[in-house]
Computed example of a mutant assay.
Amino acid sequence: MHGKWLEGRESELTVLRWQYTPQAWADLLKRHGFTDVDARILPAPDGEGLGTLLVRAQGPGLRPSLSRPPGTAHAPSPTASLR
């Protein structure tokens, strides 16, 4: 970690976190009723260091058309105004 607030520290800052594998996330979500689960690690852009864990799943009891976050509905077709 870097930043002005770390200047002058005599020791490194330790950050504790949980780190599950993609399979562990998928299993956890499935046990809680999520479907269509996809969990993977995207490689780091430079090929070095840690990648990014990306997890996507369908919420329990939601239809796909209702599962989008608010404000992310599909835009109208460009040809819709030509009719």
Rank of each mutant, 00 (worst) to 15 (best):
M1S: 15
M1D: 03
M1A: 13
M1R: 14
M1C: 05
G3S: 04
G3K: 06
K4H: 05
K4W: 02
K4C: 00
K4D: 01
K4G: 01
K4V: 00
E7C: 00
R9H: 01
R9V: 00
E10R: 13
E10F: 03
S11N: 03
S11G: 09
E12W: 02
L13S: 07
T14V: 15
L16S: 07
L16Q: 06
L16C: 04
R17Y: 14
R17N: 08
Q19F: 05
Q19R: 14
Q19Y: 06
Y20P: 01
P22I: 10
P22S: 08
P22N: 10
Q23W: 02
Q23N: 04
A24V: 06
A24Q: 14
W25H: 14
D27N: 09
D27K: 12
D27P: 00
L28V: 04
L29R: 04
L29N: 04
R31T: 15
R31G: 14
R31I: 10
R31A: 15
H32M: 13
G33F: 14
F34C: 09
F34P: 03
F34S: 02
D36C: 10
D36P: 01
D36L: 10
V37R: 05
V37P: 03
D38M: 11
D38R: 15
D38I: 15
A39G: 08
R40L: 01
I41D: 05
I41S: 04
I41T: 13
P43S: 13
P43M: 08
A44C: 08
A44H: 15
P45T: 12
P45W: 09
P45C: 05
P45I: 08
G47D: 15
G47V: 14
G47H: 12
G47P: 11
E48D: 04
E48L: 12
G49Q: 04
G51K: 12
G51C: 11
G51H: 10
T52P: 01
T52C: 06
T52D: 13
L53P: 01
L54S: 12
L54M: 12
L54G: 03
V55E: 07
V55C: 09
R56N: 10
R56P: 01
R56Q: 08
A57C: 06
A57R: 02
Q58P: 02
Q58K: 05
G59E: 10
G59C: 08
P60W: 09
P60C: 11
G61A: 02
L62H: 03
R63N: 13
R63Y: 05
R63G: 11
P64E: 13
P64D: 12
S65I: 13
S65C: 11
L66R: 10
L66C: 06
L66M: 07
L66N: 09
S67I: 05
R68H: 07
R68K: 10
P69T: 04
P70W: 11
P70D: 14
G71P: 14
G71R: 02
H74S: 12
A75F: 08
P76V: 06
P76E: 10
P76H: 06
P76T: 07
P76D: 12
P76F: 04
P76G: 09
S77D: 15
P78Y: 07
P78E: 10
P78F: 09
T79R: 04
T79L: 08
T79D: 06
A80P: 00
A80K: 00
A80E: 02
S81R: 07
S81G: 04
S81E: 08
L82R: 11
L82V: 13
L82D: 15
R83P: 03
R83C: 07
